[in-house]
Design a protein around this nucleic acid. Structure first.
Lengths: 119, 119
DNA sequence: CCTGTATTTATCTTATTAGTTAATTAACTG
DNA sequence: CAGTTAATTAACTAATAAGATAAATACAGG
């Protein structure tokens, strides 16, 4: 993994368990055990994922007695949004081309349908 | 690396060399050698990165004599944009809080400035 | 058909990742 | 202070990734 911030963010997001953890944190702070509950994975496994997220700045951890409540920190996600935004016109253009192609197919099909009766 | 599409996309983006390759492809098709030129890395190294990008569906490769021109395919980036969009309010809220905090600091500073002359 | 150019594949090394279980730390509770 | 709950660290394994060099493949042009 490269050291730069954006690379660390993308690497952290490249795991479905970690993305699921973030999704669950979107609705508020949770303890490690709460976060771990929906997963098959062992608690140390979850703990490791949380460390990856923490090092990427995507979560912060507090202390409440024996619990370490985790909360979402979305700052790095703004960087992702800003980065990907540069490519918007590329996917929109390719969707436009797909659309044009499908419309062309459709109109050919209609022509075929229309001529069916005449032959 | 997990098998799902979004994970593969994020994993592919988690490398600055690969992001740089995408950035260069944004201005049009390029051959492997052209893509490799700005980097220190060996050609097989670049070739590997291209394979990662290809498997993530981020580029497609054609054939023109002995060249394999690469072109950007931005489809998966739309999925990234859609995914990250769910978190927009989180980073905007935290920026708002930062903003409020800075304004508070500022106004306290102004009060302090204003009272300087009177003491 | 031989040579040069473009690119990939093979092979190897080193580092990192994801996961496990067992042991440890930290804090509350009776 | 002994026991319980929450969470992390340690130690290990297996898989994957990033890079290198050397060899192989694909094509063009004389």
């Amino acid at each position: 993994m490269a050291a730069d911030t954006l690379s660390k963010t993308f690497a952290a997001l490249a795991d479905p368990t970690r993305r699921e953890i973030l999704a669950r944190l979107a609705s508020g702070e949770k303890s490690v055990t709460e976060l771990a509950a929906p997963f098959q994975m062992s608690l140390p496994g979850i703990s490791k994922h949380l460390k990856v997220l923490e090092r990427a700045g995507l979560i912060a951890r507090g202390r409440d007695a024996q619990w370490r409540p985790c909360r979402l920190q979305a700052g790095p996600l703004k960087d992702v949004a800003d980065w990907v935004e540069h490519y918007r016109r590329h996917w929109e253009e390719s969707l436009d081309r797909l659309d044009a192609y499908l419309q062309e197919l459709q109109s050919k099909e209609n022509q075929a349908d229309a001529s069916e009766g005449t032959h």
